[in-house]
Amino acid sequence: MEEKDENKGSRRNFLKLGLGVGVTSILAATSASLLTSNKAFAGNSEKIKVLTQDGKLVEVNKADLVPADQIVSREDSHKGLPNRKFAMVIDLGKCKNARKCIEACQEGHQLPKEQEWMRVFLMQDTEKTAPYWFPRPCFHCDNPLCVSVCPVGATYKRSDGIVLVDNERCIGCKFCMTACPFSARQFHWKEPTTYTVPEEKYSPETNMPGREGTVGKCVFCPDKLRKGELPRCASACPMGVIYFGDIIEDTVTNGDETIRFSELIKNRAGYRQFEELGTEPSVYYLPPVDRQFPLERGLDGLDEQQIKKYDNVPYIKNLKETKDGI
C-alpha cells in the first residue's frame, strides 16, 4: 500500500513537472504538424489581429510574433500596453471566499503561503450591517499616492494604468506602504526562499524573484495581459467574481461572460472602495446583493487559526458566542 502511494506521488510530480515553465507555444505545435503527407495544413499562415503601438488593429502572421513568454525588461516595463487602460470589477454578490484567486496568485508569483498579494477580507461595516467577503487586489489607482511618495522612482504608473514596483530600484524605505491606504503593499522582511526564477530573469511585470528589503504587491499580471489572457486571479475564480478588461474598449470579462464595463457599472450600481480618499482606484466593486452563497460557506474548510483572524468582525464574534453558549 505504501509503495503504491509513493508511486502515485512520483506520478503526480511528473505531471507537475510537465506543467512547469517551458516555451512550447501553439506556434511550435503548428509547425511540427507541417510534416504531413496529404498537405492538409495551412501551415503558419494563421493570421491574428493585434493592437499596434499607435493603437490600431492590424492583421499579422502569427509566426511573426515574438513569443509571449519573453521577459519584459525593466525599461520596457515602464511602457504600458498601447491604448489600453485596465480595470477590474469585483462582484461581491458572488464571492464565497473560495480563495482560489489567492492560490493562483501565489502560485503564479511564487509567493510563500502566508504572503497574499490578493486578499479576501471579511468585511462588516457596522454591527448592524451584513458581513460580506471582500477580495482586494492592488487598486492600481489613477492618483497613486504610493507612486507620489517614492523617493527614487522605484514604483511607477504606466499608460495602461498599471502600477508596478521595480525591486532592483527600490531602496526599501517603506514610505509607499504607509502612503497606500489599502494595505496593498508588502515588504520582504527576510530573504525570500520560495522563488525558483533566476535573478537575471527579473521583470517588474511579474515582480519575481522578490528581493529582501524591497516591496512587492499585486501587479495585475501584465505578463498574462501581453498574451491576451486574464490575470491569474480572474481566470482562477470558480465563481466568476472577478471581471477584468480594458475600459478604453469598454469591455470586461470574467472568462465566461463578456459585458460592457459601463453597462455593468450602471446596472449593478458599481462603486469604488474608499472613493472619498481620492486615489481613484481602477478596481470597481458590485455591491454584495443577491448573494449566490450564504456567507458561512466562506468559512468552510478554514481551520481554527484561519477563522481566528476574523475574530474582530462582529458577525464572527456573535457566531462564537452563540456556539460557546450552547
Partner: peptide, 14 residues
C-alpha cells in the same frame, strides 16, 4: 529603517 542600504545612493542618483 531602510531595507536596502546598499542602494542608498539612489536617493541622489534618481
Amino acid at each position: 529603517c531602510i531595507g536596502r542600504l546598499d542602494r542608498l545612493y539612489y536617493l541622489i542618483l534618481f
